[in-house]
């Protein structure tokens, strides 16, 4: 079964544990400026929204890459940057409609979410369940359940 990151901004408190976990997983240090998931604070609306790569089926970044440095991980479906191949041309950062591929000046390569090989550190670190890693075909299940609960059917004795 393929899984996918699922984000529920209503549960996010903006603590940034996900950003620290991401940077530690990939760089071995607590450094939110290296995180591939970012939490945005919309102060006046009182909203915090974690945002990262959705792993598009037809990935613009992958198609745009002139050296085929972005490949699909067959196990997870993640679009993964192969650093040894990446030449840092940044065309993928332009191609991505969502801004979730970004250049890292220090390495001269781009970085994006790779689902940590199937065990995303951000989801593990999230203290409120705002980020979870669930069945990719059923990311709507929770919402369906919530709406289902609102239907007005009453229990009946038969």
């Amino acid at each position: 079964m393929q899984k996918s990151l699922h984000i529920d901004p209503n549960k996010c408190t903006g603590c940034l544990q996900c950003e620290m976990a991401c940077s530690y997983e990939n760089y071995g240090v607590f450094n939110i400026s290296r995180s591939r998931i970012k939490v945005f604070n919309f102060e006046e609306a009182g909203r915090k929204v974690p945002y990262t790569c959705t792993q598009c089926a037809e990935a613009w970044c992958l198609h745009a890459c002139p050296v085929e440095a972005i490949k699909i991980d067959a196990a997870t479906g993640a679009k993964v940057v192969h650093e040894a191949t990446c030449v840092g041309c940044k065309v993928c950062t332009i191609a991505c409609p969502f801004g979730t591929v970004n250049y890292v000046a220090e390495t001269g390569k781009v970085q994006k979410c790779d689902l940590c090989g199937g065990d995303p550190a951000c989801a593990t670190a999230c203290p409120t369940g705002a980020i979870s890693y669930i069945d990719a075909d059923w990311t709507g299940l929770d919402k369906m359940r919530q709406w289902a609960a609102k239907t007005d059917t009453q229990p009946r004795a038969s």
Binding site: T13, G14, C15, L16, Q17, M20, G46, R47, K48, P127, T128
Partner: peptide
């Protein structure tokens, strides 16, 4: 809503 400071799991 409630909100957390950096790294806080209490919020």
């Amino acid at each position: 809503t409630n909100a957390a400071c950096f790294g806080c799991t209490i919020a």
